[in-house]
């Protein structure tokens, strides 16, 4: 479904720096893959490259057999790629329901709109008409971002640290969201996360550090390597806050 071939992302930052260096990765249909690894390892950059927000300096991206390397963000969205940002964007004057409807691609009945918000643990009535502006807290806007990704109903959804800024109660809710996504196999999910409970439900874990894939496989196989990289994964059960 998704095939990354020799993807590199090189920036001129003083000298040349490879944020991503020759990444190759294949993800199958209806898979639930978690990408983890230390901060600065290149995870968000990879997500942006998949969505088309950043262009790789080398390599090729295939999506459902089609070469999408040269396609725009809009074109990739139309093909069925969705991306929940690590840092959600705020707007002046666009409401939660505006954004969820844009994500769904059509207007929604109030009940359906509310369904998406309830799913991410927000009381729909309190949020539906609110502006997605600076008045929302980090955790609130993060959940709205996830609700938008769910409303897209895309073949491939990339979630970038969905747990960040979310309190413990909502975190349990979030896990339930992903479990449900999995159960209903609503397409392929690529989740960037540091949370053990999210790693637990992955089909596969990919560890990205220093622009390289340093390990991939099941949790048991990957865990030791992960600790070697000094990743910030928090394996203390119940601790949801993460840097």
């Amino acid at each position: 479904m998704l095939e990354l071939k020799h993807i590199s992302f090189r920036v001129e930052d003083g000298g040349n720096k490879d944020i991503l260096d020759d990444i190759s990765l294949t993800v199958g249909d209806n898979r639930f893959v978690v990408i983890t690894g230390p901060n600065g390892g290149g995870k968000s950059t990879l997500a942006k490259i998949i969505m088309g927000i950043e262009q790789p300096t080398a390599g090729q991206i295939l999506f459902e057999g089609q070469d999408i390397t040269a396609l725009s963000v809009t074109e990739r969205a139309a093909l069925g790629i969705a991306y929940a940002f690590q840092q959600p964007v705020r707007f002046k004057g666009l409401t939660v329901s505006d954004l969820i409807e844009l994500a769904a691609g059509h207007s929604l009945e109030r009940g359906d709109l509310c369904g998406y918000l309830t799913e991410v643990g927000l009381c729909a009535r309190d949020y539906i008409d609110r502006d997605v502006n600076a008045s929302l807290s980090g955790g609130e806007i993060k959940r709205i971002e996830i609700a938008m990704a769910l409303a897209r109903g895309a073949h491939l959804t990339v979630f970038d640290e969905p747990e960040a800024g979310i309190d413990l109660w909502s975190f349990n809710h979030l896990i339930a969201v992903f479990q449900k996504l999995r159960r209903e196999t609503r397409g392929t999910s690529l989740i960037i996360s540091h949370q053990e409970r999210i790693l637990d439900i992955a089909d596969e874990i990919v560890v990205l550090a220093g622009g390289h894939i340093v390990a991939r496989g099941h949790k048991e196989a990957v865990l030791p390597k992960l600790l070697e990289t000094g990743s910030s994964v928090n394996f203390c059960e119940g601790k949801a806050e993460q840097l």
Binding site: M51, I53, A77, A82, F85
Partner: peptide, 9 residues
């Protein structure tokens, strides 16, 4: 960019 990821030009 955000709105483009939702499918808008």
């Amino acid at each position: 960019t955000k709105l483009m990821t939702l499918g808008l030009t």
